[in-house]
Design a protein around this nucleic acid. Structure first.
Lengths: 211, 211, 211, 211
DNA sequence: TATGAATGAGTATTCATTCAT
DNA sequence: TATGAATGAATACTCATTCAT
């Protein structure tokens, strides 16, 4: 007696998800050097099975990107319109990338994008999609920085340069977090430490920090 | 008419240097995907000749690291003992990594270390050497930050976290600079922009920035 | 409520037949590149079910050949003993291969044999069986040609060479018919065109063709 | 001391030729199922080396086609303009395909084209090139047949159908010749046997054949 | 009996490394 | 010392075949 179609459907979805999850993890760690064998091993399935679920390596990568990008992009828009001070929203943005406590998921997502932008051999379609998403991230960051400068929550200076430095900073932190999660959790517990670098010192803060 | 031993020696050293230099450049660009063929082509020598000078690919990489690490490590010591305020010396440190105007050399050196730390298949010996060097960089940074906090040149806060964020920031900037040098030069002209993030806003600065 | 054994038997036979028929069709089209998946799809059954009916791919092929050979072989004998002039019987033979109007069945059968003779990896047993059948075809052809020469219906010349050329001709036409059935139907409507090549021109024919 | 560039050049050309020759032979025998391993084995080189000379399997095939097609195509034109009766020129055409005495080269060339036209997965570029060449062959054949009918050397009838049958005949003979060269040489010694099928029986011929 | 998910062996292709010259 | 042809081991991908359900 065959499995019910529903059971098969469930199996397929579970496997697909498992492959993608494994791929995300391995990609984040190894970058474009990731082999299908790596992914299959991580997912604890045979090499051939990976090909029943995805046409080729690129298909896995594409799906991974597709799964990651739209969600976040939508999120960017919301962030701008969200209630709260610009500084608070900027903190939320940063948290969404670095993760509140170094959880793997958002870190891996951001790292995935970085690798993809780096890679020589990346299908144009994906590259575009990623580029657009990255631009949106930067634009959102910029808007929040400008607003933050107006309210005094963010240090003064050329917003474009601040965006550049901040995004580089996030990239670097992400890589670090993936390389050595333990240490990361200890030294950079959350987004506040990053954000604070952009805050002008108020008298109040000075006082609290010195206490 | 054989060459003199001295001439031979000179040729050997020149070739070796040329291979290493080429390797550094290609490694920075392509990362671990670099092929020996790439390196030989960049050095304008034959594939086989590369193997006369280095036992294998790893040997090239090792030598590259060895060549890079000691110089910089020495530099770290000097930086601490150098004249100038802590903030000035911190600026020098940052410049030595990011480059005064986005020159390739220091960027490539730093990127080399990052690739090496990332790579799964990296001989333990090299890894240690790099780890040590990296610790030294962080230690130097930390010391300068602490000194800077004492003189008021650096923002207050846990020095370890500041070090973490700053090194991540440098890493991110380096990657960016290598990925898109043009944009980098435009948006992050030099080390000042990074350093400023660590400076508490003085009234004087505030004034000048608002003008 | 289990099926009756008889019903089961009928189902099994029907499935088997459907698989073989599908296999014949696909083999003729794709040759030895045919996959089991192709066959299962054509037969509208699951992949696994094909293996309930046949041990492996080769078993399907063998059975196909066995099924094709005996029928035709029997046919050969009949042809020789059939009423009608040798020329008429030769026409019937040719039609049985090329098809009266390019129908798929006889074409596919002949093509199957050709593929089988070509294939490097063909079990000896099948090869022999096919060889024997092929020899019988040639022998029949030869006999009819000889008889035809006696009655003046077939051009004079070495019968063996005529057989060689005629069988090559049939093979070529078969391949063509399968490759491009439309064109085939237009240009070579039936067996007559082939057969005519072997007919000496009589005065009558000459007259009719020139009119 | 390195080989001289000339020596290298010679080696490269020899190897390239050897690979192509081996490929031609194997392709003719096995068709599109040919593996690179087969070709390398036939050429007695390592698998990897084949890739130093050709980018991929398709490149070998393309080159093979390119090498084969232009020569023959040019030949077609000459045939039409050649001196001699249409029948004689038709004989030359047929010989150029079937080979005067079953030599491998022209046989393999023709078979190559047949396989290529069959293959599902054939790059469009090659397909076109081959299609054009094949059309030219048919056109040449047709012209010679028409001329031959005028001089009485070729049997009367629809030229298109005669072309169809003749080309099928050649294809079939070619396959046969490659499958079993010995037998082929015995039974179909040369082009005359094919051509004769198209000749109306003259009284003279009738006489000589009956003698 | 029937299904299709899962496996493993085979083929295409790349690249570090060796070796004849 | 210098070259690049040649090799072999690794990786991407396909498909016959098995097996849990």
């Amino acid at each position: 007696m065959p499995r019910t179609p529903e059971a098969n459907q469930r199996i397929r979805e579970a496997q697909r998800a498992k492959i993608l999850e494994s791929a995300r993890s391995v990609f984040a760690r190894k970058g474009m050097e990731t082999t299908i064998t790596d992914i299959a091993a991580e997912a604890q399935i045979s090499l051939g099975l990976a090909y029943r679920y995805f046409a080729d390596k690129e298909a896995i990568f594409s799906e991974l990107v597709k799964q990651t990008v739209p969600d976040d992009s939508a999120g960017f828009q919301e962030l701008v319109e969200m209630p709260g001070t610009p500084g608070e929203r900027l903190a939320t943005l940063i948290s969404s990338i670095v993760g509140a406590r170094g959880q793997r998921e958002p870190l891996e997502a951001h790292q995935l994008l970085q690798h993809a932008l780096d890679a020589e051999a990346m299908p144009e379609e994906i590259r575009e999609s990623l580029g657009k998403r990255y631009q949106m991230l930067l634009a959102t960051m910029r808007q929040l920085i400008v607003e933050g400068q107006a309210t005094g929550e963010v240090v003064l200076g050329d917003p474009d340069q601040l965006v550049a430095v901040m995004s580089a900073c996030l990239d670097g932190l992400t890589r670090w977090a993936l390389r050595d999660p333990e240490k990361f959790r200890t030294y950079v517990p959350d987004a506040q430490i990053v954000l604070r670098l952009f805050q002008p010192l108020t008298d109040e803060k000075k006082a609290s920090e010195q206490s």
